[in-house]
C-alpha cells in the first residue's frame, strides 16, 4: 500500500499521457488527467499555506529566536486569507446583482486588491530589485580574469553589456561601412559593439545553449522513464514515515 500503489499510479498516469501522443483514444483520458493535475496543483497552494502555518506555530510555541516575526507572518497570512475568501469590499457581478458572491475577488478597490497592490507588489518587487546591488558587489569582488575561460567569460560579458546600450554607438558608431580587405568582405562596421553582441548571441550563445538543451532533454527523458518504470523511487521518501 505504501509503495506499490503509488508506483502503479505514477506508471499508469505517465504511460497514459505518453500514449496520448500516439493513440487518439488516449487523448480524452490525457485531458482528464491534466484537469485533475491542475486541481492538485491548486490544492498544493493550500498545502503550502498549511505547512507555513504549522512551521510558524511550532516556532511560536517553542518561543524560538524571532518568534515575534512568526506571529507577524501568521497575522498577515490570516488577514489576507480572510479578506480574499470573504471577498471584503467586492461588489456583485453587475449582470447578477442579486447574487452577492458573484463578484470578482480581485476587484479594484476591494480589500484583497489593496493588499496585493500596496503590500505584496512593493515587497516582492523590491526584494528582486535588491539583486541589482548584490550583482554589482559580486562583479567587483568575484569576477576575476584568473584563467583563459574566466577571461573569455569576462570579455564577452563586457561586449554584450556595452553592445546592448547606447554606449556602442558612442564608442564604435564611427566605424565606417568600408571593407577591411578586398571587395565584399568584412567591413569595419561589422565590429560595432552592438553588431558584435548580436553575433555573440546568435552564433555563439545559441550553439552553447542548444547543446545544454539537448543534454537536458536527454536527462529529462531518462529520469522520466526511470520514475515511470519504478527504477527511481526517491520521490516516495523513506519507509520510516508515519
Amino acid at each position: 500500500m505504501k509503495r506499490t500503489v503509488p508506483l502503479l499510479i505514477s506508471a499508469v498516469t505517465g504511460f497514459v499521457l505518453i500514449g496520448t501522443a500516439f493513440i487518439p483514444m488516449f487523448e480524452e483520458w490525457g485531458n482528464d488527467a491534466m484537469a485533475w493535475f491542475n486541481l492538485l496543483a491548486a490544492f498544493a497552494f493550500i498545502l503550502g499555506g498549511g505547512n507555513l502555518l504549522k512551521m510558524q506555530l511550532q516556532k511560536i510555541s517553542a518561543q524560538q529566536a524571532g518568534w515575534g516575526y512568526a506571529a507577524v507572518t501568521l497575522i498577515a497570512f490570516f488577514v489576507t486569507l480572510f479578506v480574499g475568501l470573504a471577498k471584503v469590499g467586492v461588489h456583485p457581478n453587475a449582470k447578477f446583482p442579486e447574487y452577492s458572491w458573484s463578484g470578482n475577488y480581485l476587484e479594484e478597490g476591494g480589500a484583497f486588491w489593496w493588499f496585493f497592490e500596496y503590500i505584496f507588489t512593493p515587497l516582492s518587487a523590491t526584494m528582486f530589485a535588491l539583486l541589482a546591488f548584490y550583482i554589482s558587489s559580486a562583479a567587483f569582488r568575484a569576477f576575476r580574469a584568473k584563467n583563459t575561460e574566466a577571461t573569455i567569460l569576462l570579455i564577452i560579458a563586457v561586449i554584450v553589456l556595452l553592445g546592448r546600450t547606447y554606449a556602442s554607438e558612442w564608442l564604435t558608431g564611427g566605424f565606417p561601412n568600408e571593407p577591411i580587405f578586398g571587395e565584399g568582405g568584412i567591413t569595419y562596421s561589422d565590429f560595432k559593439l552592438d553588431h558584435l553582441s548580436q553575433i555573440i548571441m546568435d552564433d555563439f550563445t545559441t550553439p552553447g545553449m542548444r547543446a545544454i538543451k539537448i543534454g537536458i532533454a536527454l536527462g529529462v527523458a531518462s529520469t522520466s522513464l526511470k520514475v515511470l518504470l519504478g527504477v527511481d523511487r526517491s520521490y516516495l521518501g523513506s519507509d520510516q514515515e508515519a
Partner: peptide, 17 residues
C-alpha cells in the same frame, strides 16, 4: 515576515477561487 504571510495567503486565495 509580512511578505511571507501575504504571499502564501494570496496564492491560496487565488488557487481557491
Amino acid at each position: 515576515a509580512v511578505f511571507v504571510g501575504v504571499s502564501a495567503a494570496y496564492a491560496m486565495v487565488v488557487g481557491f477561487w
